[in-house]
């Protein structure tokens, strides 16, 4: 009598079950207690070092970044209005350099954050009238408003 097909199917199913139960060659072997302890110590050391660096960086900072005002629970935070910004090539280059430096530290600094910082510094250094005087003349493209008249 030919082999029983059901026996073959049972064997195949058993083989599949064993393959599933066997550890994958890709997965790492289970760690021993000693290895686990060493890894825990290494991670603790890294965490302490990171905290120390952050503390030093905060101490050397000239000014603390103001905390955002807390939003009352249940009230949706109003988003500030967006204003178009047309950077010239130097601005663009500088923003790109900032983004690059942020990426090197595995952080993400959007252009809008850079602009807010610049505004904050500018408001400390100059008054509005000084800014107007600084910008009057060269940035005005004609000084005329409305439809050009013949």
């Amino acid at each position: 009598m030919a082999p029983d097909g059901l026996d073959d199917l049972d064997q195949e199913a058993e083989g599949r079950r064993q393959r599933r139960a066997a550890p994958s060659r890709r997965s790492r072997p289970p760690k021993s207690d000693e290895e686990r302890r060493q890894e825990r110590e290494r991670l603790d050391e890294e965490r302490r070092e990171r905290e120390r660096r952050e503390r030093e960086a905060n101490e050397s900072k000239p000014e603390p970044v103001p905390e955002p005002t807390p939003v009352p629970a249940g009230k949706k935070r109003d988003r500030p209005p967006s204003i178009p910004f047309y950077p010239d090539p130097e601005n663009e280059e500088f923003l790109w350099t900032v983004a690059e430096a942020a990426t090197a530290r595995r952080e993400k600094i959007p252009a809008t954050a850079v602009l807010r910082l610049a505004m904050r510094r500018l408001s400390q250094q100059m008054t509005p009238s000084e800014i107007v005087r600084e910008l009057s003349g060269p940035v005005q493209t004609g000084g005329k408003m409305g439809r050009p008249r013949r």
Binding site: D4, G5, L9, E12, R16
Partner: peptide, 25 residues
Amino acid sequence: KSPPARMRKRLRDMTTRFGIPVGPA
């Protein structure tokens, strides 16, 4: 195609009950 165990068992029970030989799959 990878039949579940309950179906294999069902066919096994059926063929055993009636004494029917099973050929290769």
